[in-house]
Amino acid sequence: MSEIKDFTLNCPLPISDYPTVTLAHGGGGKLMHQLIERMILPAFQSPLLEARHDGAVFNLGGARLAFTTDSYVVHPLFFPGGDIGSLAINGTVNDLSMCGARPMYLSCGLILEEGLPMETLWAVVQSLKQSAEIAGVQLVTGDTKVVDRGKGDGVFINTAGVGVIEHGLVIAPSAVRAGDVVLLSGDIGRHGIAIMAMREGLEFESKIESDCAPLNHAVLALIEAGVNVHCLRDLTRGGLGTTLIEIAEATGLQITIEETAIPVRDDVAGACEVLGFDPLYLANEGRMIAILPEAEAAKALDLLRRSPNTSGAVAIGRVTDGGGVVRLKSQIGTTRVLDMLSGEQLPRIC
């Protein structure tokens, strides 16, 4: 095994640990963060990029805008609770929402594999259309490319989106303060298990549906009611655990959460026990955390619970001074520090 060389600015190839890209580089864990920190950020140096938010926030022509992009490469294309089309709309809508923006216009790039049944493509297009209608956004520009058979996985989609920010709040990790509470918008882990179950042919007594949903209406309800939101993050690949760790590291504050307060559906918990997964690191596509002052928590919870996609909102923990770490109070009353995973969770042997 070759010695590990730390990256220096002179290094022509900043990722020396792996000579090729592995799946773990896209898993939302440490290897992906390394890739972003060592290769992407230095290459494109920009203060907007450095903010490392779910989207870039800037002023343009007198308006404050949020701008984001995301690519969707899911297998299978259709799964319980959603499909690649609804993911592509909701993912970008949610990234804009986490900036506190009202999502307005989306672009859509379709990369299609030769041989894809036209019927499948039509179903994806219909899903894109319906999801955009539900979220209240417009698809206004797009692109289509076809690659040789075997060079794609049916359909890849990229969407980018623009939203407008109609308030003066700074919604970012930098606004988080000691004393804030952490709200979670619903049960976690369903998307990860729904995909895994389909992909691997696992069968459970009940069908586990993805939580894929747009969060813009819930976020705008908070903002329009005047709730002083400090930070919003949607929970995607790395799950609740990774998201909280990112915020703790960015703020240098400590976040303590109660394991018993985090809703995990019984069937998801059961699947996790069988596979050796931790629900804290499972992917979600319609869940977020909101960090805000304790005095506003009751009002915010009430507003979130009235919105259909955040009706299971609960308070799971609070922010205190010091540490830059996330502590979990376990159900048996002990405490441990949460760490980021390297890549995706791997099913265990026994």
Binding site: Y18, T22, L23, P347, I349
Partner: peptide, 27 residues
């Protein structure tokens, strides 16, 4: 699944997968 990331002398099974090997996770 968890055997894929165990390091061999030079490379792990994930590395073989990245180079185009047909490596599959089964239950």
């Amino acid at each position: 699944g968890d055997m894929l990331r165990v390091p061999g002398s030079e490379v792990d099974l994930f590395g073989i997968k990245a180079k185009g090997g047909d490596v599959r996770i089964l239950y």
